[in-house]
Design a protein around this nucleic acid. Structure first.
Lengths: 256, 256
DNA sequence: CGCTTTCTGCTAGCTGGCGCACATAGCTGC
DNA sequence: GCAGCTATGTGCGCCAGCTAGCAGAAAGCG
């Protein structure tokens, strides 16, 4: 078969298996078979809004090769990313936590694929299946750690460091070393000026850690990126590793 | 009986009822009676560390008239508050979320009283009692909202606004309008310089919103404080009101 | 009462990140 | 190959908050 075009994979390609999502993959065969008929395959294009702040959440989403950002948007339009979720997790914890909704927005940050489950199906299963419940609660705790480190990082660290953290968190949720993401979008996620991201990215490029051009960022020296990031990244990574089921194909990286 | 000394209430005073804690008060009589024998009364002096980052959490704590801060302490000693919990909640969610511990520290921010429950007792009950489980998960979601707003506030708002938010969050968890808290401690909580707090507090005092002297802050005009705070406070307050059981004696305040 | 400790106030200079305005450089489509 | 859009680069003034050092005032203590 001929090489696929780089930027736009053929839409007719078979979707990834639900088991690409680590939570779904971690379920017992019994539970998995029970949920499978209710899992609906969905494409998640860049910028798609899964939930609006305070809006009804009809489904939970299990990304397989996409990344979803949880954002809070202020009254004046400014925004800040709270956390990101990829194939290691799920989007829509408010459904099983009991609040039904949250005051934040979920937006696709990296296009890809996922599966979704109707809220009613998930809630019924959550309340009756201890295995699923424990898995989802542990994921929620990992997510909480990510949120708290975001708060700390926002308070104490420079844009450079935060950009490193953001790149690494994204990279961990993608195959390969490439991100399709403009500086403008990164700035929205970090809640900083676009120019601030330009300057930070220029520095990283000058140091030979990344290469970028027009919405395409390639990490060329992950090790040095990890040496430059603040401790927040490692804290989050450790908690995810500790709390979530390991995946055989997970990338091995040296974290100090 | 003679007037009590102001700063140090007689230690022999009868402790508040467990039902001063809103979560315990919201339980059905059945569940409450079941837990009551395991509830251990504890004094919580200012500065007491309930959990160390990553350390074992042997109990969950239900404050009755105290306030506990969740803090993250960076490697260089800088810190930032993640959330606060008073009589409306509990400290130690990691126990029922399944992670057993968290990378943050829990410190008593306002001295008072509370009850605690051994981890094993709580976990057993959580896993077998849907009522308790739903209550605690809803509280956890409210706490998550507080954490996310902390992240947003850290990113976008001035020290003045954050101080207002912090004062209001504390006030909501105390009787009366007085806080026993030095600017130094507030600065640690907010993760800013002590002088920054001095300046912000001076402005608030000059505007007639608060009065303070040596570790004693009195809010004299709560309404105007609420007018000056950023939206983060109202978002958190709304979520707590929405997600947690109402308390008859809760203070009625006008939130825009 | 005098000494020490703790808390608050003030100064001066520095810097990271902001707002704004504008220049340039790749893509895309015709 | 040109037009037009989108993405990035840059400069400049500004300010909140930081570092650092010190002074004064209140509370606690022997």
């Amino acid at each position: 078969m001929a090489e696929m075009p780089n930027r736009k994979p053929a839409p007719a390609a078979a979707p990834p298996s639900p088991k690409e999502n680590r939570l779904l993959a971690a379920l017992s065969e019994d539970t998995y078979r029970k949920l499978l008929p209710s899992l609906e395959s969905v494409e998640l294009p860049l910028g798609m809004v899964l939930y609006e702040s305070g809006g009804a959440q009809a489904h939970v989403y299990f990304p397989t090769d996409s990344i979803v950002s949880l954002l809070y948007v202020l009254a004046d339009g400014a925004s800040a990313e709270i956390a990101v979720t990829g194939a290691e997790g799920l989007v829509g914890i408010a459904l099983f936590m009991g609040g039904e909704t949250t005051p934040s927005r979920a937006v696709v940050q990296s296009a890809g694929h996922g599966y979704r489950l109707r809220a009613s199906v998930l809630k019924r299963e959550f309340d009756t299946n201890a295995e699923l419940q424990h898995l989802l609660l542990r994921f929620t705790q990992a997510l909480i750690t990510q949120m708290t480190q975001t708060a700390v990082c926002n308070r104490h660290h420079s844009i450079d460091q935060q950009l490193c953290r953001w790149l690494l968190l994204s990279l961990d949720r993608l195959k390969g070393d490439d991100l399709l993401m403009t500086q403008e979008l990164i700035a929205n996620m970090l809640g900083v000026r676009r120019e601030g991201v330009t300057e930070a990215a220029s520095r990283l490029q000058a140091e030979g850690l990344i290469e970028y051009q027009r919405g395409h960022i390639r990490v060329v020296d992950r090790t040095r990126l990890e040496a430059r990031v603040c401790e927040c990244y490692a804290v989050v990574k450790r908690e995810y590793d500790r709390l979530l089921p390991a995946l055989a194909t997970v990338r091995i990286t040296a974290i100090r």
